[in-house]
Amino acid sequence: MASAAGSLAIDLDAKRGVRLREGAVVASLFTCALISILTSAGIVIVLFWEAAGFFKSVSLWEFLFGTRWTPLLEPRSYGVLPLVCGTLLVVAGACVIAIPTGLACAIYMSQYASDRTRRIVKPVLEVLAGIPTVVYGYFALTYVTPLLQQVYPDTLVYNAASAGIVVGIMILPMIASFCDDALRAVPESLRLGALALGATRFEVTVQVLIPAALSGIIASFVLAISRCIGETMAVAVAAGGTPNLTLNPAESIQTMTGYIVQVSMGDTPHGTLGYYTIFAVGALLFLMTLGTNLIADRVLHRFRETYE
């Protein structure tokens, strides 16, 4: 047997068939991976190509700094600020709800809750995160808004507050889960060390754990903001369709995403300026979410504490 192998041993060269097959497999797998790059390129090209059609008629200056957005009604005006303002109002409302609650959930789960409690709370939060956003829109319009109207009767049927509240509920699970991970990543020794000095759990959490996990916590907030900016259905249902430059959460507003949906639901023919506006707004939306995502990434990596 050994001698038979001995005669075989001369040939160690790569076999052409095997090499071809492996090469073909790798090439086709790589092509599939490449599709992700093509998608990114597609997004950038499509948005800016179609937006270019818009900027042939409207100056960038007017778009970015104009304070009236009436692209479908006479007199037409293409200032995107009311939409941006509407988006930011919803973001602010969502943050007011989700940041304290999400962080509290994370602290409770990582510091206080028993394993059994965790086994209840975690899946519930996952379910909350998995509910389609159009459902939250329904919830905002038929439950949250009437509730707000009871408290503050001047609230309009469509208003920024109820949209902000449900978007807050939507992003809460994400903040809770990210912060939970960040708090758990802090070494046990640090926690025990602080407890051994006679600190209460509250003092340990606020003065030791949160500072140690700060980069992860902040990054989760920024990522959540990015999700709020891009959130569509809930705000399209609940926030209204009137682009108002206002900071009053009881008023009806329109977000960037809400505007895109409104145009798409209507009958705006291809090639008109109205059609191009959704790409201009979409490009701005894309840049804003990309920017916040990059900031989150930077926060996570720049300020990460490393533990041995």
Binding site: A5, L8, A9, I10, L12, D13, A14, K15, V18, R19
Partner: peptide, 20 residues
């Protein structure tokens, strides 16, 4: 070298090597 053949030569296939 394995039976006189350089295992790290250019055209040697590591898969062939490991079969033996």
């Amino acid at each position: 070298t394995y039976r006189g053949r350089d295992l790290y030569a250019e055209n040697v296939d590591p898969v062939e090597v490991r079969r033996r």
